[in-house]
């Protein structure tokens, strides 16, 4: 190595630590607040605080207000803030709300399972056979999802409508002689539309869990005598269960409160709880009842989600 003598190492330095104490840098005792801010935890909290504060103010705050509202009552335009359970009584016992809630839960659970079952082979394909093009595959699969929520549902209305694409196409081909009236304005139309809308959401967590699966485990199982089906049931399925659960939840919970799909393709028989909630905050203007409907929906869907997680955990234990 060449000329070191040209340098005067150690003699010069960028800043002399003996220089006057820097602002904010104190070596002696300091206030506990300052000490916390300089600690690892303090820096972490300080960094995350702007987005966290925003989420607290605009998510937690409003949700607390909604929960509070659900225990009040409304007379025309004035809110009576005495505690009451009347709204919950109405939300959970009146047949109209009970039916809507049951239907919403049925739709969201069905959509979640249908979506996940249909998506699993696709996630498997991308993860195991995607090769260099995994990223491209994921992009191709997620693009339709980005095309706009309202527009996707509108498309299905155009496809399934009485005078829509499917009916007119089948008529043109001579498969049917008059339009089918069973395509749209029922629960099935809602389920089809939602399952299509949420496909990408289900594939991503499934793909991630399949990617994490160590391929040598499958080879080991094969080496120990398991065929493809047993390998799937004993290795792949239990180890990708977290992804399956995540995919189910990420579809089920948001869809329970879907508003646009039942409105556009659900008709009278496909109305869901979100439509009833919207009415309370719009035309009917009964905030406390709307709030109670919203809170009940969230609580019940959370309980149902918990039950499904427990059930799947049980299945996972059985697969050995």
């Amino acid at each position: 190595m060449a000329t070191a003598s040209a340098f005067s190492y150690g003699k010069e330095q960028h800043l002399d630590p003996s220089a006057p104490t820097l602002p904010g840098v104190r070596t002696a005792r300091e206030a506990p607040v300052m000490r916390f801010m300089r600690s690892e935890a303090g820096k972490g909290w300080l960094t995350i605080s702007p987005p966290l504060l925003y989420a607290v103010l605009l998510l937690i705050g409003p949700i607390i207000v909604i929960v509070a509202n659900s225990f009040w009552s409304q007379d025309y335009l004035t809110i009576d803030r005495t505690f009451t359970l009347e709204n919950y009584k109405a939300a959970l016992t009146e047949p109209i709300y009970r039916d809507l809630l049951m239907r919403s839960l049925f739709v969201s659970v069905t959509v979640a399972f249908v979506t996940v079952i249909l998506a699993y082979p696709v996630a498997w394909f991308v993860s195991f056979h995607g090769g260099r093009y995994k990223g491209l595959w994921l992009f191709i699969i997620t693009v339709p999802f980005w095309s706009g929520y309202l527009l996707r549902i509108l498309s299905w209305k155009v496809i399934l409508g009485y005078k829509g694409v499917l009916n007119s196409g089948l008529l043109y081909l001579g498969v049917i002689t008059e339009p089918l009236s069973t395509l749209i304005y029922n629960v099935n139309a809602v389920i089809i539309t939602l399952a299509h809308s949420w496909a990408a959401f289900a594939i991503l967590p499934l793909f991630v869990s399949l990617e994490k699966l160590d391929r040598s485990l499958l080879e080991a199982a094969a080496d120990l005598g398991d065929g493809p089906v047993r390998r799937f049931l004993r290795i792949t399925l239990p180890l990708t269960m977290p992804g399956i659960i995540a995919a189910l939840m990420i579809v089920m919970i948001p869809t329970v409160g879907d508003y646009v799909t039942p409105k556009l393709v659900g008709g009278k028989d496909g109305v869901m709880i979100a439509n009833a909630i919207q009415v309370q905050f719009g035309k009917a203007s009964n905030w406390p009842l709307g709030a109670a409907l919203a809170v009940s929906t969230m609580v019940i869907v959370s309980l149902l989600a918990g039950a499904i997680v427990l059930m799947l955990a049980g299945i996972k234990r059985l697969l050995k």
Binding site: Q13, H14, L15, D16, P17, S18, L22, V25, R26, T27, R38, S39
Partner: peptide, 24 residues
């Protein structure tokens, strides 16, 4: 990293609270 307790001196000067960009 900062020590939980104790001191580190470089060239006879305590380094407590001195960030990396100001150390020799």
């Amino acid at each position: 990293d900062e020590p939980t307790s104790g001191t580190i001196l470089i060239g006879g000067k305590s380094m407590a609270g001195i960030p990396p960009n100001l150390r020799p």
